[in-house]
Design a protein around this nucleic acid. Structure first.
Length: 278
DNA sequence: CCCCAGTCCTGCGGGC
DNA sequence: TGCCCGCAGGACTGGG
């Protein structure tokens, strides 16, 4: 489940490829179903081969490899995708390997166990129509209280569900939405309309606090062990989770409440009965 | 317009 | 012990 902290960790780990020129791209034929490569595998290869990598950026949960001709490679990791400059977690799920010259790092790979992610070459114009301001909200690390209120406070949706809306705010996924609301001490079911200014401020601060803390620990690797940084090492923020996947446990913050799991929009939410009264 | 349910895909774990 | 089903939750789409 790469969310903003995991994708930001990927971005930082991938920076050594900047300045490298793509010699070739190998898309192995695998037993598993192929991922989406756009516009097609052959055009993808033809348009990237020979290009030099100018930068690696992030927008919400997407990774952007900027080429020297100003076109981009959009990487969408979705559930289980990741990039590695070291050995990948395994070979059967390596979806593409880019070989490089001109840098210390000789290659990097996109690895994706479930294969819901995608790799797409696109122009800067195509990128804006896909991930422009009308499609993607302000980045969660940058969003102001005013922007947050403006985009969510008129909604009748529960706050937990609204925080997952990438068009409103970019980068928060299921895991960090629960963690953020616990830090902000707000129950996940509260309708956005009922949240007052002070609480929007708490939410905005909690977003920054939780996400930057998670980046510091290089993201969360859950019990399935899927998520890895670019060197194929696990993150360690899972040891600091306050509520996520801790149903039945006593809250480590207040030592009083119990962590409860509930389902909202077909997704698990976790909250503390004492820190987050309804 | 706003929101929810279903879809894609693989691997794991619970239940029988 | 072995098998099968359901769940994990990214983004998107069709429909109420």
């Amino acid at each position: 489940m790469p969310e903003l902290p995991e994708v930001e960790t990927m971005r930082r780990g991938l920076l050594p490829i900047v300045g490298g020129t793509v010699v070739d791209i190998v898309v192995p034929r695998l037993q598993v179903k192929p991922i989406r490569v756009g516009p097609s595998v052959s055009l993808f290869r033809r348009r990237i081969r020979g290009r030099t990598i100018a930068d690696v950026r992030r927008r919400g949960k997407r990774l952007l490899v900027i080429l020297d001709d100003h076109n981009v490679v959009l990487i969408e990791p979705r559930m289980t995708g990741l990039v590695v400059i070291a050995d990948p977690p395994d070979l059967p799920h390596v979806r593409a390997t880019f070989s490089l010259q001109g840098t210390k790092v000789r290659e990097f790979s996109y690895w994706d166990r479930r294969g819901l992610g995608s790799l797409e070459w696109m122009s800067a114009v195509q990128l804006e129509s896909r991930l422009g301001p009308d499609r993607l909200g302000p980045d969660a690390l940058e969003i102001s209280v005013g922007q947050l209120r403006e985009r969510l406070s008129h909604s009748r949706r529960p706050i937990k569900v609204a925080l997952l809306d990438q068009q409103a705010i970019a980068g928060i996924g299921n895991l960090y939405a629960s963690e953020i609301l616990h830090v902000a001490r707000i129950h996940p079911s509260v309708p956005c309309q009922q949240i007052d200014h002070g609480n929007w401020q708490r939410i905005q601060r909690a977003i920054r606090e939780v996400l930057s803390e998670a980046i510091h620990y290089e993201g969360s690797t859950l019990s399935d062990g899927t998520y890895r940084n670019a060197l194929n090492n696990q993150g360690s923020y899972q040891h600091h989770h306050r509520v996520y996947d801790r149903a039945g446990q006593v809250c480590s913050t207040c030592q009083q409440g119990v962590i409860v799991r509930m389902v909202q929009s077909q997704r698990s939410s976790f909250y503390c009965t004492d820190c987050q009264p309804s």
